[in-house]
Simulated assay, not measured.
Amino acid sequence: MDQSPKTAPIQEGEEYDVKIEDVGKEGDGITRVEGFVVFVPDTKVGDEVKVKITSVRRRFAFAEKI
């Protein structure tokens, strides 16, 4: 089981106002929350969006636009 690590500065369900800084290989927007990488589908560089964290992994997280 891949439990959410205690070291991640964010948790599932949290909401943040972020700015998309980069785009990943799969085309997802990339932002950082407290230095922690977050992938946000359906965004592009420069977008300023409110997101909700949907999944937290060891080194990165996924979020959705809300």
Results as ranks from 00 to 15, higher is better:
Ala61Phe: 03
Phe60Trp: 05
Val37Ile: 15
Val49Gly: 03
Arg59Lys: 09
Gln3Cys: 08
Lys52Ser: 09
Lys6Met: 12
Gly27Pro: 10
Arg57Phe: 06
Gly46Ala: 10
Lys52Thr: 13
Ile20Gly: 02
Val45Leu: 04
Pro9Lys: 08
Ser55Asp: 12
Thr7Cys: 09
Thr54Leu: 09
Ala8Asn: 01
Val38Glu: 05
Val40Tyr: 03
Lys6Phe: 11
Val56Leu: 01
Ala61Val: 02
Asp42Ala: 13
Val45Thr: 12
Gly35Tyr: 10
Ser4Thr: 15
Val33Pro: 02
Ile66Pro: 01
Asp22Gly: 07
Tyr16Gly: 08
Arg57Pro: 03
Glu26Leu: 14
Lys65Gly: 08
Gly29Trp: 08
Gln3Asn: 14
Glu48Asn: 13
Glu21Gly: 00
Val49Glu: 12
Ala8Ser: 10
Lys65His: 00
Arg59Leu: 08
Lys52Asp: 06
Glu12Ala: 12
Arg57Gly: 06
Glu34Leu: 13
Lys52Met: 15
Gly27Glu: 12
Gly27Gln: 11
Glu14Ala: 12
Val49Pro: 01
Ala63Ser: 11
Ile66Glu: 12
Asp42Cys: 04
Phe39Gln: 07
Val45Ala: 05
Ala8Tyr: 02
Asp42Gly: 00
Phe62Tyr: 10
Phe39His: 05
Glu21Met: 13
Gly13Glu: 10
Val56Trp: 02
Ile20Lys: 02
Val37Tyr: 05
Tyr16Pro: 03
Arg32Trp: 09
Asp28Val: 04
Phe60Val: 05
Ile30Leu: 15
Ser4Met: 15
Phe62His: 06
